[in-house]
């Protein structure tokens, strides 16, 4: 039975204050000319008046740069050249006010980091330490197309709590035990009423008119789409700036690099991007994706075809619209998806 709690906005700030005693809190804050998710400082409140953040909150579980191991190169150290675990803080943390699209993205990305064969300890430990508190969208951005990606402004997948702004109060739906625990810990105990939610949800969904066409992608043959003639045109304007992959909540690729200072070093993992030629360059100098159209094709094929075929969970896109909004040359995943969706290979 899902618990509904009423949170009077007057009591919100005090509740956040209480939560900060048992959780590391992350929330949207003003970041120069936009909003982004940051760890909240003592006494800092999340700014829930934002539209969407420029970067997705994927960094809460997957930092852009993260230490994996330390090591010593000093041969007088008996343990030299042996990888040592880095102390990590996996105490409970909570993201406050993330958008439902970004929450669904986390559950899609989980399929990559938590497989039957391997469990990525850094991503998974951070994920398991996190309580995800969503904030339903009342006023979606013009570039949002979540409703056609199997998501939506009130989508609950990947969330522990969904907050719905209801004027003077938030209607809080506790979706998991983790969510119930967080609400209790914030002192949010007033029983609420969810009767207003359905109408608000329908109204928010109706505001999203942009769509992505994906219905025929699963029946296409990988080789047909791969060999399709449109990739040079699709890629023509791309400048391989990597903004799309950096802003995307479902992009997860990373690099591993050793960084040394004197005799001490750290093995780091850093976000990487399939848009750069170095991503795939062999030691020999041979590069299977040295041309721009090959890299652009990889990005869209991964999101709209390989992922679809591999997991049968739809596309690797939640319709947040960040890549559409931020692309300096106006490349639009919706246009590319339509091109792929409509494509019929000549037999």
């Amino acid at each position: 039975m899902m618990k509904i709690i009423n949170i009077d906005k007057q009591k919100w700030a005090g509740g956040v204050e209480s939560l900060s005693k048992s959780y590391r809190l992350f929330g949207p804050v003003k970041d120069v000319d936009c909003h982004n998710f940051k760890e909240l400082k003592q006494g800092e409140q999340p700014d829930l008046s934002y539209g969407n953040t420029k970067l997705s909150p994927k960094s809460v579980v997957f930092p852009p740069s993260e230490a994996m191991f330390t090591y010593s190169l000093d041969e007088s150290n008996p343990e030299h050249h042996i990888l040592k675990d880095v102390p990590k803080d996996y105490s409970p943390r909570a993201v406050l006010g993330m958008r439902p699209c970004d929450a669904k993205a986390v559950s899609l990305v989980r399929m990559n980091f938590d497989t039957p064969e391997y469990r990525d300890p850094y991503w998974m430990d951070a994920y398991e330490a996190t309580t995800f508190v969503g904030l339903a969208c009342e006023n979606p951005c013009a570039s949002c197309f979540c409703t056609s990606t199997g998501c939506g402004p009130y989508n609950e997948e990947g969330l522990d709590v969904l907050l719905v702004d209801n004027g003077n109060a938030y209607i809080a739906k506790a979706l998991t035990e983790k969510g119930e625990k967080l609400l209790a810990s914030g002192g949010f105990t007033d029983a609420g009423d969810a009767s207003a939610v359905d109408a608000k949800k329908a109204a928010a969904e109706a505001k999203i008119t942009a769509k992505i066409e994906t219905d025929k992608l699963s029946e296409k043959v990988i080789m047909d789409l791969y060999d399709a003639p449109f990739w040079h045109d699709v890629a023509f304007a791309c400048i391989n700036c990597c903004t799309c992959t950096y802003a995307c909540p479902t992009c997860w690729c990373f690099d591993i690099q050793d960084e040394n200072k004197g005799c001490e070093g750290v093995r780091m993992r850093n976000w990487d991007s399939c848009m750069t030629p170095l991503f795939t360059m062999h030691g020999s100098g041979h590069n299977p994706r040295d041309k721009k159209h090959q890299r652009v094709r990889q990005r869209f094929m991964h999101k709209l075809k390989y992922f679809v075929d591999k997991y049968q969970k739809g596309i690797m896109c939640v319709g947040c619209g960040r890549c559409v909004q931020q692309c300096p040359v106006n490349l639009d995943i919706r246009t590319v998806s339509k091109t792929m969706n409509d494509y019929v290979a000549k037999s």
């Binding site: 497989t115 064969e117 690729c253 990373f254 990487d272 990889q298 075809k305 390989y306």
Partner: peptide
């Protein structure tokens, strides 16, 4: 086959050919 790899366990995302990861 071979390709540039980092993680070797199918997670870091660079060695794919189509939907197959060369490493895993």
């Amino acid at each position: 086959l071979e390709n540039r790899m980092k993680c070797g366990i199918g997670i870091c995302g660079r060695c794919n050919i189509g939907k197959e990861l060369i490493c895993k």
